[in-house]
Design a binder for these strands. Structure first.
Lengths: 94, 94
DNA sequence: CAGATATTTAGACAAATATCTAAATGAATG
DNA sequence: CATTCATTTAGATATTTGTCTAAATATCTG
């Protein structure tokens, strides 16, 4: 699966979009994120993996915690790709 | 499923995104669209249904043909929703 | 090191999805 | 009106996906 498709799939799940939204407030540990969602930590961990595979989040271990943050540069690229799909066709190069 | 989620799911499939892209060039009949894709018309019809359920395309019967067009106003709304998710958190109202 | 805490991985399972073939519907036309 | 053309619907099937429980891994601390 190419990167673009991986990203679209990652964003198709409401839980994962909510994770992104909560991370916009700032980096959080896996546990802090998990506390906001009504599912097991194992399920959340699966969603983290999907988001990581899409390169939408980054991780950093801090002691026994793992801190998740948004990968803002990739998020910007994604925004551009989505706009390219959805915006009217009035680019210069055409 | 709420409308937003329906839209995200609709866009998560590469064939459906390609249908949207081809319709950006202008309205086309189901058959003309089908000619551009290496799958059966039945499969394409399924994708059309998903796009219609998400209100991303509109249809109009013309004789024995059915013409598909983009629902541009909804597309604009979708773009805004996606930007809201992906853009940095610097809105006025916060 | 033994235990506690934080997180991930493995494996199972039900539900959703994309595709196909075959049949049905709808409209034009000789 | 019987046939043909365009498209959709129905039903089957294989794959993917989201969730869970149980077990594994990693780190800290007494």
């Amino acid at each position: 699966m190419n990167h673009q498709q991986t990203v679209w799939k990652a964003l198709a799940d409401p839980t994962r979009r909510a994770i992104i939204r909560t991370l916009k407030a700032g980096s959080k540990t896996a546990g802090d994120i998990a506390d906001e969602f009504p599912m097991t930590r194992a399920s959340l961990s699966h969603h983290f993996n999907v988001l990581k595979a899409a390169d939408l989040v980054r991780t950093e271990r801090r002691g026994q915690h793992i801190v998740y943050s948004l990968n803002t540069s990739v998020l910007d690229d994604v925004a551009a790709i989505m706009m390219d799909l959805l915006a009217p066709n009035d680019h210069d190069k055409e």
